[in-house]
């Protein structure tokens, strides 16, 4: 497809979109790293918001508008709020907690570094000269995505409704304090 075009595009002459993508990407990655290392539990959730928001910007830069809005709505709007609620309900300490990391830290670091080395090597090897053409028709407007969803992906979509319902029921039944039947 657009592999041929890649040859003409060097890494040393970045386009505007690329510069924006890389900058936002660095910010996203930084926020993610802080989120998994900070000792302040609530801050971790807030840094996660930054990272997820950064990803939404990246989606926009990749012309996937619909996904970007869904990302903002679902993640930033509800998931993080849920997580914060969870932190409150489990009486997580506000402020620094010295034992935020488990004893497994070094094993975790080793596995993560090994995984990163593998994945990055493979990905760079695979895509080092692949050009992503963003100039054509919009790929991810709400209309395009919606049409493809209902034309080609009806079955998983339907199955997903069962999933959501089950998750809802499951979450309710688990978090309901024991009462009702046995009383």
């Amino acid at each position: 497809m657009s592999l041929a075009a890649a040859a003409s595009q060097g890494f040393l002459s970045p386009s505007g979109v690329e510069i924006a993508f890389v900058l936002v990407g660095i910010a996203t990655l930084g926020a993610a790293v802080v989120s998994v290392t900070t000792k302040q539990l609530v801050h971790a959730a807030l840094w996660l918001v930054v990272a997820l928001g950064g990803l939404a910007v990246e989606y926009l830069l990749l012309t996937a508008e619909f996904i970007a809005w869904v990302q903002v709505l679902i993640y930033v709007g509800s998931v993080v709020v849920l997580l914060l609620f969870g932190l409150m309900l489990t009486k997580a300490p506000i402020g620094r907690s010295p034992d935020a990391d488990s004893g497994n830290r070094w094993a975790a670091l080793a596995v993560a570094v090994a995984a990163a080395a593998t994945l990055v090597t493979v990905v760079i090897d695979a895509f080092r000269s692949t050009w992503l053409d963003l100039d054509g028709a919009v790929q991810g407007s709400a209309e395009v995505t919606g049409i493809s969803l209902f034309r080609h992906w009806v079955l998983p979509f339907e199955a997903l409704s069962v999933l959501l319902l089950a998750a809802l029921v499951g979450a309710i039944v688990l978090s309901r304090i024991n009462r009702g039947r046995e009383r």
């Binding site: 998983p156 199955a159 997903l160 069962v162 999933l163 089950a166 499951g170 979450a171 039944v173």
Partner: peptide, 13 residues
Amino acid sequence: VVALEVTSLPAFA
């Protein structure tokens, strides 16, 4: 993927 999740998620509960 969705079917696998439909199998697993209720199982957690």
